[in-house]
């Protein structure tokens, strides 16, 4: 397979399939720059006659994508902060302190992964209603933060348990308490793990659909991009170029973040199978 011809054939195959692979995204972006009229007549030609930004202004202003976008940003931001903070703190306690009951906590976290669960979104929704948060963005953020975050806790615990003891001891000698040691000495070394957790959670929350769909059923003004897109399709069925503009607005942030930060994301994924 390492002969020259074999290599060229492999590359040609990989490139051709690769283009087909991401063609839906190319098509989406190019359609978003066409007018609805040229879209219908252009066949499979991806190149728009001239760049037409009007679909974006229509999606952004008329179809409420500005609101959806802000909601998506706020919900993702809130969820990422909550989830990463919680799992970092838990990971530190589990990985670093041999407190009584540590094993019980680990067993509980592990068990939750395996317990068969029913349709949990309904009780989650009822719980938000009970807290009086079913009509606010905080409710969506809290609901999105649910789950045991097992992967992140394990990532953090594994990382913190590998830190040499001397670091803590010397910090204690300098008069740092538990908190001081954690925030000033230990946390700065955990940047790569924090980055992995932030990026993975960002991509998951940004793409989440069922939770925001259910929690915003009665609140169109709280919809995220993914949910707003569905209602857009229901409302303007024939406006495909507007739809393509909306889809581009929804997907571009996550694609850009992924391309810039993919190292952390792929490391996290392969860490999770191991």
């Amino acid at each position: 397979m390492n002969t020259k011809v074999g290599k060229i054939i492999t590359h040609v195959c990989l490139i051709v399939i690769g283009i087909v692979w991401i063609y839906p995204f190319i098509w989406m972006i190019s359609s978003s720059l066409k007018t609805n009229k040229t879209y219908l007549t252009s066949g499979i030609n991806p190149i728009p006659e001239k760049l037409n930004w009007e679909n974006y202004t229509r999606a952004w202003e008329v179809a409420n994508f500005s609101t959806y976008f802000i909601n998506s940003v706020l919900i993702t931001l809130g969820t990422v902060i909550i989830v990463v903070t919680l799992s970092c703190l838990t990971g530190y306690a589990l990985g670093r302190v041999d407190f009584p009951g540590r094993k019980v906590v680990i067993v509980c976290i592990g068990a939750l992964m395996f317990i068969p669960s029913g349709y949990t979104i309904i009780p989650l929704y009822q719980f938000m209603k009970f807290l009086g948060l079913s009509n606010s963005i905080y409710g969506v953020i809290l609901a999105e933060s649910s789950g045991a975050h097992v992967l992140f806790i394990l990532l953090f615990a594994a990382f913190f348990s590998r830190i040499p003891k001397e670091m803590e001891e010397s910090a204690a000698m300098d008069g740092c308490g538990f908190l001081g040691t954690f925030f000033r000495v230990i946390l700065p070394t955990a940047k790569p793990v924090i980055a992995t957790a932030i990026i993975m959670q960002f991509i998951w929350t940004w793409s989440s659909f069922l939770v925001p769909l259910v929690l915003t059923l009665n609140n169109p003004e709280l919809r995220t991009l993914a949910v707003g897109m569905l209602s857009f399709v229901g409302k303007y069925q024939t406006d495909w170029t507007g739809m393509a503009a909306g889809a581009t607005i929804s997907l571009l942030p996550v694609i850009i973040v992924f391309i810039l930060m993919q190292r952390y994301f792929i490391e996290g994924i392969s860490g999770s199978v191991k």
């Binding site: 909550i82 703190l89 029913g118 309904i122 908190l179």
Partner: peptide, 29 residues
């Protein structure tokens, strides 16, 4: 002192675990 801090560190996750994970699972049944 270390143990107490460890419990404090776990507490928020613990609350989220019970309120947003375990409670919905039980109620789904």
């Amino acid at each position: 002192n270390r143990y107490i801090w460890a419990y404090i560190f776990i507490l928020p996750q613990f609350i989220v675990f019970f309120g947003l994970s375990l409670y919905p699972i039980i109620m789904s049944y």
